[in-house]
Simulated scan of single mutants.
Amino acid sequence: MRNMFRWMVVGCLLLTGCADGGSPEAQGPKETETREQWTVSPVFETASGSKVRGEKNRAGILVHEENGLVVTQEIAKYMWLVWGDPEQLKKGATAEIYGMHREDGKRQLLHKASLNGPMHGADAMTLSGPTFPKKGLWKIEVVVDGESHATFVLDVK
């Protein structure tokens, strides 16, 4: 009887130790992430000459010369630009913009909408209102119709 009790205790400890710790949305950055993964993404120029910060030829956010190519909390609207397969990015495809703030590591939905047609040299775009609840580094993931499309880092001032 004592042996059976010991095995039950060991089994419970093993099962508790193997728990996954919650959903991926609630988990913060992994300890193995390096500083390079939180380096602010570069600004690139589109075919139409617009300045975009993000992952070149995948997705990014339109930035303006007036604010020094910096994303701020004060901008009234953001334009998210997406490049890729025209079939996947057809008008009406759903775009979800997720953000994870470096301090708290919580993944949150910043914007969800249907993609609109081409603009500023991109294959598709969507507009959002002010979406960043606080300043600092944000890791952005652009998801199109449920598939991860691009990831980049913004420094919100």
Rank of each mutant, 00 (worst) to 15 (best):
D145I: 14
W7A: 08
K90R: 15
N67H: 10
E33K: 00
C18E: 09
S48P: 07
G117D: 10
K106Q: 04
G54E: 08
N3L: 14
Q73M: 13
V43C: 03
H120S: 14
G92P: 05
A47N: 10
G60N: 00
G54I: 11
H64T: 06
Q37H: 05
D20Y: 09
E103W: 03
T16E: 13
G68M: 10
K77L: 12
N67F: 05
E55P: 05
G117Y: 09
E96T: 11
N3A: 09
A124L: 11
W38M: 02
M119P: 00
P118L: 04
Y78F: 14
K90A: 15
V43Y: 01
S23P: 12
F152V: 01
G68R: 13
L13N: 11
E36S: 06
G68L: 10
E103R: 04
V63I: 13
M125T: 08
Q27A: 10
V63N: 01
K135G: 00
K51G: 00
K106W: 00
D145H: 14
V70M: 12
Q73N: 10
A19P: 00
S128W: 04
S114R: 09
H111I: 02
W83I: 00
H64C: 04
S41T: 05
P86I: 09
E147W: 12
G60T: 01
I75P: 04
V40H: 02
M125G: 06
G54H: 06
K139F: 13
M8V: 12
K91F: 08
R53H: 06
M100R: 10
E141S: 09
T72M: 01
S128G: 08
K90S: 15
M119N: 07
E33D: 12
L154Q: 07
A76D: 12
G49I: 05
K112G: 11
K134P: 01
T72N: 02
A150H: 04
H111P: 01
G17S: 12
T72K: 01
A59H: 08
V144C: 13
W80K: 01
V142I: 15
V63F: 02
N57V: 08
D123F: 04
F132E: 07
V153T: 14
R58M: 12
G60D: 02
S41A: 13
D123A: 14
M119S: 06
R6Y: 08
S48C: 04
G17A: 14
L13E: 02
M8D: 05
G129S: 05
L154K: 06
K135M: 03
F132N: 04
P118K: 03
E74Q: 15
W80Y: 03
